[in-house]
Structure formats: C-alpha cells, structure tokens
Design a protein around this nucleic acid. Structure first.
Length: 952
RNA sequence: GCGCGGGUGCCGGAGCGGUCAAACGGAACAGACUCAAAAUCUGUCAGCUUAGUGCUUACGCAGGUUCGAAUCCUGUCCCGCGCACCA
C-alpha cells in the first residue's frame, strides 16, 4: 500500500505546478463562484476552520466535473482586536500568551533562538500576519483544496481598505449611517472600550451591562438617588436604605444636587453627566430623616442597611419589603429589635409602624412574595446572603413573567410586571423623577488590573438597518436568494425584523478608518461584508499594479455600479482603458457569487449584514444567489477548547490521517447542517475504508478490458449509484453522496465479483465511473488511481460520469433479490429442520389468478383503504375464500406486496433460468412446478414472488 | 427570559404519514480463510414463535388527529446553540 502522505504531496504539487485551479474568464463555460468566509488569523488552524472549506471544496469539485468554470478563492481576516491583542500581550510580557505563540511558531521553526526572535517580533501586529499567512495557506492547501490563491488578500491590504472606504461612502450617501449615544464596557485605566478578551476571566464569566433606574427622592435642596432593577415595585416602596458606615457625597449632577456614593459619582461622569462633588455626607447623619416619595405625597424614612454597597450603583437602595427579600429581612430585623433602633438613634415605634404594601401577585407567589419565599427557603436572617440572592432571583423571575400589578398601583393596576416596568419609567422620565444608570453585572478588571465600568459614548457610529428602504431591499434580495437548507429562511426573516442599529466603528483595533471621521476604525464584522467582490478583480489589480491612490470611490463606482465613463476615469486615475475594462469584465463575469457556505451561527450577524451590505452597494443583478449553512464541529463530544485539550489542528490531522481520510470522514459522519463530532477512533475507521477502496480499485484496474456485461442487475445498481450520487450532490447532500461511493459501490462490486463472470469488462466499466466519482471526496487517491489506470490528465478535471437511466432496471434487480431470498428461505428452513442434506427442493409457483389479483389490488390500494370495499371490488366467485383472507392481511402488512409484480409466466421463466444457479448454490436438485398442477398442500400458500417451498 | 435546533436500537447517526424492528457505519457474538493474529468475507444482533414469509413491545414522556404516526397536532420534561460590538 502506498503511503497517503506521499500520494497527497505528489498531487498537491502537481496541481500547483499545472495551475489546475487557477481560473480565468472562459465565455464558453458557465461560471460558478463559490466562497466561504475568510478565516481569522490567530495561530494554527484546527479542524473547526476546516469544515467549511472542505465542504466547499468537495462540492465545488463536483461542480467543476460537471463542466462549469469554478472559482474558489480565499483570503484572510485580520481586523479587530485579536491580532492586536496577541501583539499587546507579548509586548506586556503576558507569559501565557508568549508560551502559546512560542508553541505555535515552533511547529514550523525548529531553532529555539529563532523561535524566540520571531515571537518577539510579534510585538508588531503586522509581523504576526506576515508570519502566519503563508503557514495558513500551506495548511489549507494540505487539505487538497482547489483554491485559486492568486486572488488572495488580507483585510488589512490597501485594496480591501479602499473597498471598505467606498462601501462606507455608499452607506453615508444613502443615509444608512448615524451617530448617537451608546453604553459600552470601559476600562478606566486603558481609557478605552473593552471586549470580552480584554477582561480578566471575561470569557468564562462574562460581564454584562445592566440598566438601573435611578429614582430621585427629594431631600431638602437635594435628591437622595437610589438605583433599582425593578421600577415596577414603585408603589410598594416604604422606606430608603443606606449604609450607616459609608460616607456619601453630595454632588452637582447636570445642575442638580444628588446624594450618592463616591464611586457612583465618578461613574456618572463617564455616563454623559457633568459631575462636581460638593461635599461629603456621612450615612449616619441621614439616618432617621425622611425624604419625599416620588409617586405620592408622603415621607419615606431613611434607615440603615449594611448590605448597601457603595461600589454598586448609587449605594442607596429603595425598600420594597413586599417583593424584595433583602428589604423584608432588613426591615424585620429593625422591627424586631428596639435595641438595634436605639443604637442608631431611631424611633422604634415609627419603624414598627411600617407595613409592607402589597403590589404584585404572580403564578406562584401571593402579594407578599418576599415573606413567602423566605419562609419556603428557610431564610430567617439577613446574614444568609447567598440564599437571599437565590430567593431574590426566584421572585424576580416569577414576577417578571407572570406577575400582575394590584389595585394599590393606581393607573398601572392590572398591568403585567413587564409592561409596568416600561410604562412607569417612561412616565417618571417625563416628570424628570428618574434617570438611567448602567452598571456592570459583576466586579471586573481589565487585564492590566484597571476597573471595568460602563461608559456612554455619545458620538458612536451606527449602521441603521431601519433607515428608509434598506430593510425592504434586503428582504427582497433574501426572497430571491436560495437558502440551503431552506428551514433557515424563516430565521433570516426574523433576524431582519429585529435588526435595528448596530455600532459599526470602534476607537481601537486593526482595520479601516472611517473615511469621514478618522478617529474611528470600522468594526471587524462591518468591514467584511462585500469583500467577495474583490476576489473577482484582485489578481488584475496586482497584475496592473494599481495603487491605493487609484482605488478611489469613482473607481469602484465604475467597476461595481457601471457609473461614470471609461475614458474620463482612465484619464483621471491614470489607468489604461484596456486595463480598466479588463477589470470590469472580470467583475461582470464572476459576480455575483453563486454560493456562500458558512457556519450556521453566522446567520444572525455576518450573513445578514452581508445581504444588507450587498443591497446597499451593488445593483440588483449582483446580489448573492445562494447561502448554504453548515453545523458546528465538536471534538470527543464537547466543544473544542485549549483548556480541554481536545483541539485537533490541521497539522495533527496531516500526520495521522491525511486529507482524504479527513474529507471522507467529514462528509460521511454527519449531514452538512448537523453538528459533527470528531472522534479519532471513528476517523481511523474511515481511513481504513478509503484505504480498502484504494487497494480494491488498484487491483481491479489491473484486469480490465472493454466488453459487454450480462448481469443486468449489476448494471442497474451501479447506474442508480451514479444517479443517487449525482442527485445528492446537486442538493449538496455530501453525506449521501459519500455513502454511495464509500460503501454502496464497493458492496455492489464485491457482490458481482464473487459470481466471477465478465470480470474484466466489469472492472473496466466500474473503474471509469468509480474513480471520477471518488475524486471530489478523495482527490489524492483518485488522481493516483487515475494515473495508475493509465488515464490521461487530471481526474480533478475529468467529467463526472453520466448515468444511463435506461439501464436502471427495477425488474432485473428485483429478480435477483427474489432468487436470493428463495435461497435464504431454503437455508432457513433447512436450519429449522436440522436437516444436513437435502435431496430435492420443490419450488411451487403461485396460481395464475393471484398475479392478476395482486396487480389489481396494488392499484386499488393506492386510493382505497376500506377492507370491505376492497374485498367487494376484487372478489371473484371462484376464489372468494382466498381473497377474503388475503385482503385484510395485505392491507395490514403491505410489505407482502411485491415491489414488481411479474406474471406467472414470467416468474416461471425466471425460476427456470436460475434453476441451475440455485442447484449449485444449495447443492441439491431443484424442481419447479405450478401451483395449479401441484399435489402439495403448501401450494395453496404460494404468492407472487413468494413461491411455496417443499424440501425433501 | 427570548429565538433556533434536537431527543431514534449497545453506540454514532439516517428516516420526517404506509414496503419501519427502522438506512449506513461501529461495537458485540458466531462462522469462513489462516499455524495464529490482523485484514477481508459471511451470518446474527428487541423479545417470543415457526418447515420460511408470524406475533408482541418499541423511536424522551402524556394525550390527540388518522383506516394507519418515529414521522402531523397539543401539552410536558430534558439537552445543545445564538442573543449585538464579539470574531
């Protein structure tokens, strides 16, 4: 057996040398442009990266063999934070990152000193890109991809950047961009917005932004400002909590005097507020005083609760003892203990008089949910904070979804909690009694140790998907697009419906600057929505040495939108007319792309943006034609991750299994849209299977000669294999296709090979078909077999076999099956009889009338199920008894109706023909007789294609 | 919570109104080949039954529609994924 590695390298080299996959305009052929999202540079590639490209490759190889001019290009994405993050990590001496990248680099470079030098150079992000891109190309190529690498680029290349600039000019012209306020996670030390990977443990314990409602309680010339997540409990407020040990501040916030915690004052200054601290106010000094309620004309007592933390929100909390377990317990503690009140100098009687106000009932709680949940969970003390947190969540969950406001809530009575939250905040906002404050969901720090808070950007750039007409255009484009599988269309529609505004630029990261506001960098999902168009012209831009300055908006207007005049543009940009025309011709020939194949979770973001972007930038006839989606990939039953150690890189893959085994496993283990589970033991089996096929085909190729094949059943089976493979492929059902070439074909071949007849002709026939059929799946083995079989040219460029429908012969297959069934039945009976030797087998063919009956019955059954009616219409006087017995049995078990119903004569002839074969196989005499002439009792049991058997 | 997808035999995983005890693969068991093993091939692989083509219980759970449901509907439990600046 030849080594897969050797074969793989040999053919990959040949493909490259002979430029097999470099394609140009060919007006004689129909073009097919397929692509998949460009991968992000981040180190070694793993099998997760490989799924989309491999599926595209297998499928596109089929399309190519069907005679189309196939373009499969690929590029690389480097925008955004990750590359920058790597380089910053290395610069900052992040040991984990340095070790990780040393490992990656040493996979390619053996000299340790050299490795160190290279990793050090990664302090410049471009060095990372420069180092990894060639490696990634090689790794991709090792999968046997038919990529036209001449058209490759990165999202940092000038051509790409100019394209994106043009795109954003288009957005601006159409009014699809807007600026506004936007809350972001923000590091105080980095002075910048941060993402998950900038935050310590941000990936494992994500930080969310929470929207608090600030309520302003009048207190002399100032306001005591509390923060709550439950504005719906407004009417249950009984008092105010603050921490007696904390020193608060009085601060001027947008002109008003607010009493809040010190950290809060600082945070507010990041949230679009003007803040000036006036003086300090101790918590103690406020205890026992009152402030004005905001929803009615009463006073609220200010009471101590040590659970109020100055770091969270304002450090002041409004008390709702009916719904909030903390409030209920804190109040109860004071009410139960005159001593405690005395300690704080409070009037116990006044506190004792405070009563929880019922405001909400829900599915599982009464109007005193706080009290109830504490009782249920055995919470008796304010000290049990872990339990109280759980209780609070539980109450909130139930009340939020099922709660209704009671009469006590004035005009909000009868509203659901969800509705009330919105209405109350809206109304109070009008009266200027509330404000909005954002807080992080947990204490978090950025990697340099700085605190994470929420800041409001007030000139954030947004893509406005609701801008005039955009959605309508996108929906229309979607309508005309093919979605595979189509079940995802509805999801697209839903996503389109809720898409609103999306921030599209950031203040940091690698990428293209917003051309009209250069402090912003276009965000990395927004800069990768129309780059597929660049594939059509990138090689020409390089060939004609077009510079960045020449790639002006007019240039793209002309190429992509046919705006402007060739002669004027040529003069202006100093590009030769012929060159401009060639570039445009290329775009016109290849675009739009025929298919984009990608990961299903991209649907709600990338793919949707892509459709929107295309409607904004390209004419109607250049919209994407088809989107196909694949499922995710897991390893050993769980998500791949470094920490689990179950990541399989393409380098591992190449060492152990090789491209063909991987391709076969990928396509065969599951359907395209389902989750694929990588299990090395299973891959091993697939590898064996393809090696087995390789040996088998190699052997059979040695004994070939054109000739006629008498076995019709065999021909029929192979022709239907081709038919099935072809049809499956057309629907991109790679699994079914691979089933046919990996399992069905060898089975059929081995079955016929055993009969030992017409072997050279059979070998010749199957070789010509099977090898090309294997080529999309296992291109390396297929090429090798093709050349071993002395065929000319690349099988990758050969034509896909045509199937001959006329040879697909249900009857022939049926006959063969029937004979095999008879043989099996005989052996079965023999076993039951424990009969070692048989002298004779009598095959008794059913009575003639049963054949006509069966034929009629089958026809009738298609539209009639009523047994009574069936009997009535089928019965004849002679066979009443038999028919009344047969009909119910056949209705109940239609599997007894033969697939093909022969005539008695045909069946008799068939058995006559196979008599000798049966005799040989069963090694005894075979006698055939018609039931009409038989004296055997069993003769009555015979049915079409199920003769009665009598052994002796 | 919202949205989407899914729960099938020892396992992976097809099937999406009748030919379904359920494709295909794997494991397991028995047999052939072999000195032996691997590979390969053949058979068995829910249970019972039988001179064969028969019966019963089965496709998360509970109901329903239908002559007929793994497949359609309703409810219910469980699992996975996405939820916006993150590529």
């Amino acid at each position: 057996m030849s080594d897969f590695k050797e074969i793989q390298d040999k053919w990959q080299k040949k493909w490259k040398q002979e430029k097999v996959f470099e394609v140009d305009i060919n007006k004689k052929k129909e073009k097919f442009f397929i692509n998949t999202p460009y991968p992000y540079i981040s180190g070694s590639l793993h099998i997760g990266h490989a799924r989309a490209v491999t599926e595209v490759d297998v499928y596109s190889r089929f399309i190519r063999m069907r005679g189309k001019n196939v373009l499969f290009p690929m590029a690389f994405h480097i925008s955004g934070m990750p590359v920058l993050g790597i380089s910053m990590g290395i610069k900052n001496g992040d040991e984990k990152k340095i070790a990780q990248y040393k490992e990656y680099v040493s996979a390619y470079v053996s000299n340790e000193k050299e490795v160190e030098k290279i990793v050090k150079s990664f302090e410049d992000p471009w060095k990372i890109v420069e180092f990894f891109i060639p490696k990634m190309k090689d790794e991709y190529a090792s999968l046997g991809l038919g990529v036209d690498w001449r058209r490759s680029f990165t999202s940092g290349d000038v051509e790409h950047q100019k394209l994106v600039e043009w795109q954003f000019h288009k957005y601006k012209e159409k009014g699809y961009l807007m600026q506004g306020k936007y809350p972001v996670l923000y590091s105080k030390t980095l002075n910048n917005a941060v993402g998950e990977d900038d935050i310590t443990d941000g990936d494992t314990d994500p930080v969310e932004k929470r929207e608090f409602t600030l309520m302003k309680f009048s207190f002399g010339d100032s306001f005591l400002v509390t923060a709550t997540l439950r504005p719906d409990t407004l009417f249950g407020q009984t008092n105010l909590w603050l921490n007696p040990d904390v020193t608060y501040v009085k601060a001027k916030v947008n002109g008003e005097k607010w009493i809040i915690s010190k950290p809060c004052a600082e945070k507010l200054s990041y949230q679009d507020k003007k803040v000036e601290i006036l003086e300090e106010v101790t918590g103690k000094s406020l205890l026992g005083k009152t402030c004005k309620a905001i929803h009615k004309n009463t006073d609220l007592l200010i009471l101590p609760f040590k659970g109020c933390k100055p770091e969270i929100a304002t450090g002041l909390v409004i008390s709702v003892p009916s719904s909030a377990p903390y409030d209920y317990l804190a109040l109860k503690e004071l009410q139960d203990s005159p001593q405690l009140c005395q300690k704080y100098g409070l009037d116990h009687a006044k506190i004792k008089a405070i009563q929880a106000i019922p405001i909400i009932v829900s599915e599982s709680f009464s109007e005193f949910s706080a009290q109830e949940v504490c009782k249920k969970m055995n919470i008796t003390s304010i000290q049990q904070d872990k339990l109280i947190d759980v209780a609070t969540k539980e109450v909130y969950k139930v009340e939020f979804h099922t709660g209704k406001l009671l009469k006590s809530c004035g005009k909000y009575a009868g509203k659901s909690v969800q509705q009330a939250q919105q209405l109350i905040v809206e109304d109070l906002k009008k009266e200027k009694k509330v404000d909005i404050f954002y807080e992080v969901s947990r204490h978090a720090v950025s990697r340099d140790g700085g605190e994470i808070i929420v800041a409001i950007m007030d000139n954030q750039w947004f893509l406005d998907f609701n801008a005039k007409g955009w959605k309508k255009d996108a929906k229309q484009a979607l309508k005309e697009m093919e979605i595979l599988p189509n079940k995802y269309r509805k999801q697209f529609e839903d996503v389109f419906e809720w898409l609103d505004k999306r921030p599209c630029a950031r203040l940091r990261g690698i990428g293209t600057q917003l051309p009209f506001d250069k402090q912003w960098v276009i965000e990395s999902l927004s800069d990768s929505t129309i780059y597929m168009s660049l594939y059509t012209i990138q090689d020409k831009l390089k060939k004609y040495k077009i510079s960045g300055e020449q790639l002006t908006p007019e240039f793209f207007d002309y190429i992509f939108q046919s705006k402007g005049k060739l002669t004027d543009l040529s003069k202006k940009l100093k590009i030769k007319e012929a060159e401009l025309k060639d570039i445009k011709d290329n775009f016109e020939y290849w675009y739009p792309f025929d298919q984009r194949h990608t990961f299903q979770p991209h649907l709600a973001n990338h793919l949707s943006f892509m459709i929107f972007a295309h409607t904004a930038c390209f004419p109607k006839d250049k919209q994407p034609k088809k989107i196909s989606l694949h499922g995710m990939i897991i390893s050993g039953g769980t998500k791949m991750s470094k920490s689990k150690g179950n990541t399989v890189t393409l380098m591992d893959l190449n060492k152990q299994y090789g491209a063909d085994a991987f391709r076969a496993f990928l396509c065969n283990s599951t359907s395209v849209d389902a989750t694929m589970n990588w299990q090395s033991s299973e891959v091993e089996k697939t590898k064996k299977q393809i090696e087995h096929i390789y040996t088998l085909v190699q052997e059979l190729s040695k004994n070939r000669k054109q000739g006629s094949i008498t076995n019709k059943s065999f021909l029929s089976k192979i022709e239907s294999c081709i038919q099935r493979a072809t049809q499956s492929f057309e629907e991109m059902n790679l699994r079914e296709y691979s089933n046919v070439v990996l399992f069905e074909m060898p089975r059929v071949y081995q079955h016929i090979a055993k009969q030992g007849k017409d072997i050279p002709a059979i070998n010749d026939y199957i070789f010509d078909r099977w090898v090309p059929m294997l080529a999309p799946l296992c291109p390396h083995y297929a090429e090798e077999l093709w050349s071993l079989g002395k065929k000319k040219g690349f099988v990758s460029l050969a034509l896909w076999p045509q199937y001959n429908e006329k040879l697909i012969d249900e009857k022939a297959e049926f006959i063969e099956e029937t004979i095999e069934n008879i043989a099996a039945d005989v052996q079965e009976i023999q076993k039951l009889l424990k009969k070692e030797k048989m002298e004779k087998i009598k095959i008794i063919i059913a009575q003639e009338w049963k054949y006509t009956f069966m034929k009629n019955f089958k026809k009738l059954l298609a539209k009639e199920r009523d047994i009574g009616v069936l009997i009535k219409s089928l019965v004849d006087k002679e066979h009443t008894k038999d028919i009344t017995a047969l009909v119910p049995a056949l209705v109940k078990n239609p599997s007894k109706i033969p697939l093909v119903i022969l005539t008695q004569k045909e069946e008799n002839a068939m058995f006559g023909q196979y008599k000798e074969i049966l005799e040989k196989k069963l090694s005894c005499k075979v006698e055939i007789e018609l039931a009409e002439k038989s004296k055997e009792q069993k003769a009555a049991n015979a049915l079409p294609s199920k003769p009665a058997l009598v052994l002796s």
